Amino acid sequence: MLNGEQIGGRKRSSFYYDIWNIKYLSKFKWDDLTEEIAYKSAIREQKLALEISAAKRERDFYLSKVDQSRKLSSIEERMKKKQKVQEESGMNSELPVSHKKVIRQFPQKKPVAVDTSQGKPRLSKDVLAGVSIA
């Protein structure tokens, strides 16, 4: 008795099972396969482009914040140097009015006291008289 792979010599090919599967697919066309591959690759490219653009936005935001921080620190350094020069020359050492922190106080209104006795609806005595307890 012969082994299953030796029958007819057809199963010796490494593509035998692939060909067999393709051979019995009904209404299958090669264009369907290539179209699906192209569609998947297009989706992959779109996702990759989205990730890259998001990473670029994050990078640009971070770099803008770094530049802003550098600008603010250089302004503070200049203000400290200017203050130091003013102290050495004996001038007023207070910061200019534009750099002082302004604390604003707003007048508060007192809450209106709610009279609880008038706020609750009450049943009239006529309605209560009409209710009989059984």
Rank of each mutant, 00 (worst) to 15 (best):
Q105A: 08
A42I: 07
D18Y: 00
E58S: 13
M1N: 08
V66N: 02
K125S: 15
S73L: 11
M1E: 14
K125N: 08
V112Y: 05
R70V: 05
A38G: 06
V97H: 07
K125L: 03
S13C: 07
Q105R: 14
E94W: 04
M1T: 12
D32L: 02
D126S: 12
V131S: 04
I103Y: 12
M1R: 10
K47G: 12
G90R: 11
F28K: 11
L128D: 07
Q46G: 05
K80N: 01
S93P: 01
Y39S: 04
R78C: 02
A42G: 05
L128F: 09
R44Q: 10
Y24Q: 10
P107Y: 06
Y24N: 13
W20A: 02
S26L: 00
E76R: 11
K65R: 05
V114N: 06
K110D: 07
K23R: 14
K81C: 05
D126H: 09
R12G: 12
R12M: 11
Y24E: 03
R10Q: 09
D60S: 15
Q6V: 06
S124M: 07
K100S: 12
S132C: 03
I22F: 03
S89L: 15
P121M: 07
S14T: 11
R104W: 02
Y39R: 12
K71Y: 06
Q118F: 04
S117A: 15
V131W: 08
P111A: 13
I103T: 15
P111W: 06
R44A: 14
A54L: 13
S53C: 11
M79G: 01
I75H: 05
A129G: 07
L2W: 00
E35S: 01
V102D: 01
D32Y: 00
A42R: 09
F28H: 06
V102E: 04
Q118M: 05
R59T: 04
K101D: 02
I52T: 15
R122Q: 11
I43S: 12
G4Y: 11
R70K: 13
D31T: 10
Q83T: 08
P121E: 14
P121H: 07
D31A: 15
A38E: 12
V102K: 14
L123K: 10
E5H: 12
D60H: 08
Q68M: 05
K47L: 10
V112L: 07
L33C: 11
S93R: 08
K81V: 13
I133F: 03
Y39C: 00
L33F: 14
F15T: 15
I43T: 10
L33V: 15
I37N: 00
R59F: 11
V114D: 02
L2M: 09
Q68L: 09
S124D: 12
K27M: 06
K23I: 02
A38M: 07
R57I: 05
I19E: 13
L50T: 10
L95F: 09
K56V: 01
S93L: 04
V114E: 02
I133P: 00
R104D: 08
K56A: 03
K40V: 10
W20H: 01
E87K: 11
K81P: 00
L128I: 14
I7H: 03
V114R: 08
K100L: 08
V131L: 14
K109H: 07
V66R: 08
K81S: 15
R78W: 04
L25A: 15
K80S: 01
V102W: 03
G9F: 04
S93W: 04
K23L: 03
I103K: 15
S41Y: 09
A113P: 00
K80H: 01
L63K: 03
V85D: 08
